[in-house]
Design a protein around this nucleic acid. Structure first.
Length: 455
RNA sequence: GGAGAGGUGGCCGAGUGGUCGAAGGCGUCCGCCUGCUAAGCGGAUGUAGGACCAAAAGUCCUACCCAGGGUUCAAAUCCCUGCCUCUCCGCCA
């Protein structure tokens, strides 16, 4: 939600901002509707005042034993007017909300102006794309060769855009989650506080999604559980940001930094034909998310830190990446400024998004009533929220399979992950065991796994 | 899922249908006092929208005592529904 006073003070500036996002907004109609709504509110308030005055007069008279029938009749008349005014107010309020809740955030001044993703600006690169002496295979082929990635069986149980990982693949996914969380929650060399880890619900109420901006506009992107009026989260941003919804936080406590691993669920409506193969675009994927709550004057610095924190994971894993600043036309609905981090995919010969780090300024905080008490003057103000992937697990896994593949079809495990893989430093295609079971001769020694399934 | 008890300000906790935005306490803030600290004393202390004002201060109006309906001239207070919490039972990872 945008700051009403700010928009109404300079509607032309707001209109320019919306146009820079490629969204023409009829500010005239918006201003007019707002004025109409506001007039209805004032009218309703005036009538309430009148009724309150008369009612308390009745109280006085009753105590003195004076007759009140006449005033009571008056109040009844006023009440009729209130009823009508309330209906009008309610109607206008609904119409106004519908408009205001679908207005996107205003881009920050530092965001490059541009029409679409072609005008995004590359800021920096990290690492070198690997050089191969053979044509690198796409990750789904590498994964299939290793026997750790299976899309056919996933489709059998769940349909398109789901995946099934097995053996070292499943373990690698778990390793990445643990590795990333450990990185973000580790104490920092400069003594600044690390991220606090949260484990959050995957199903949320509509108002939670309204706060972060997915509703009302992007309902078709969400999986919805109609029987309970709950939505599956499209990102941990939703539950983590909503953790503090409706709260007032003392300025000294800011910034508050949280990280959380969750599965994420997206319908990918309108993405038909895009990334139909592989792990890039799934209905369900894993992500470690970073979320900041910060004071407005510091949030732009914090976005830099947040982005560096996300990129740090790629550095440790030895993956090549670049950071780009999204232009106004490519900015997400709630964001005031966004950096995308893209990782190198050898099979595609290009960088693909692996993290999106945004400052939402006070946009989500207004919608979710997340405020802070400024220590200087004790005033209560909306704070700023930020978040970024740190990182998307499936895409990281895919990038590892592609970037560290060997000619034999194996994959080298980056050194920091080896402890998380139980010492495994190389995935060997010769170790592959089909899910339907190995033949008697090549069946590996049974793992000494305890059965915990009986709870 | 069944039975019962509740949901009031940062927290605890009163509240008879009318002057209750809400007693009291705790906490917090500002002063005073005590040569430090504690204690003590005085005062202030919800949020949102709006009016007056150049602005601040201040005064005033409207709303909010889980949410939504209802009764009433008038609802934190009475009624209904929903949600949530707690206790007991059932079921269950």
């Amino acid at each position: 939600m945008l700051d009403r006073n700010r928009i109404l003070k300079d509607p032309e500036a707001a209109e320019r901002a919306f146009r820079s996002r490629g969204l023409p907004v009829d500010m005239g109609a918006l201003v007019e509707l707002d004025a109409e709504w506001f007039g209805a509110v004032r009218e309703w308030e005036a009538l309430r005042e009148k009724r309150n005055t008369l009612s308390s007069e009745i109280g006085l008279k009753k105590r003195r034993g004076e007759p009140t029938a006449e005033i009571e009749a008056q109040v009844r008349t006023v009440n009729e007017a209130i009823g009508a005014a309330e209906e009008r107010k309610r109607d206008l309020e609904a119409r106004r909300e519908e408009v205001w809740l679908t207005l996107p955030n205003l881009p920050h001044d530092s965001v490059p102006v541009g029409a679409d993703e072609n005008e995004n600006v590359e800021l920096r690169r990290g690492g070198e794309p690997p050089v191969f002496s053979f044509p690198p295979k796409p990750h789904w082929e590498v994964g299939a060769g290793l026997g750790i990635l299976d899309f056919d069986r996933a489709a059998r149980m769940s349909g398109a855009r789901f995946s099934l990982l097995s053996d070292a693949g499943a373990r690698l996914e778990r390793a990445l989650i643990a590795f990333m969380l450990d990185c973000h929650t580790a104490s920092r060399p400069d003594g600044s506080p690390s991220y606090r880890e949260l484990s959050v619900p995957y199903l949320v109420l509509p108002e939670s999604l309204r706060a972060t901006g997915q509703l009302p506009k992007f309902r078709e992107e969400l999986f919805y559980v109609a029987a309970d009026d709950l939505f599956l989260i499209p990102t941990a941003e939703v539950p983590v940001t909503n953790t503090l919804r409706g709260e007032i936080i003392e300025e000294e406590a800011l910034p508050l930094k949280f990280c959380a691993y969750t599965a994420c669920f997206r319908r990918e409506a309108g993405a038909a034909g895009k990334d139909t193969r592989g792990l890039i675009r799934q209905h369900q994927f894993d992500k470690v998310e970073l979320v900041w709550f910060s004071a407005p004057e510091r949030s732009w610095d914090h976005l830099e830190t947040l982005t560096a924190d996300a990129a740090g994971i790629l550095e440790r894993l030895g993956l090549s990446y670049r950071v780009i600043a999204l232009c106004t036309g490519d900015l997400g609905f709630s964001a005031a400024k966004t950096y995308d981090i893209e990782v190198w995919f050898p099979s595609q010969g290009r960088y693909r998004e692996i993290s999106s780090c945004s400052n939402f300024s006070d946009f989500q905080a207004r919608r979710g009533q997340i405020r802070y008490r400024r220590s200087e003057d004790r005033k209560v103000q909306p704070l700023h929220t930020l978040n970024g992937s740190g990182l998307a697990i499936g895409r990281t896994l895919a990038a590892l399979l592609e970037n560290f593949q060997t000619e034999e079809g194996g994959v080298r495990i980056p050194e920091p992950l080896v402890p998380y893989m139980g010492g495994i430093s190389y995935l060997d295609p010769r170790d592959a065991v089909p899910l339907s079971g190995a033949s008697r001769s090549e069946r590996p020694k049974a793992n000494n796994v305890k059965d915990f399934s009986k709870g």
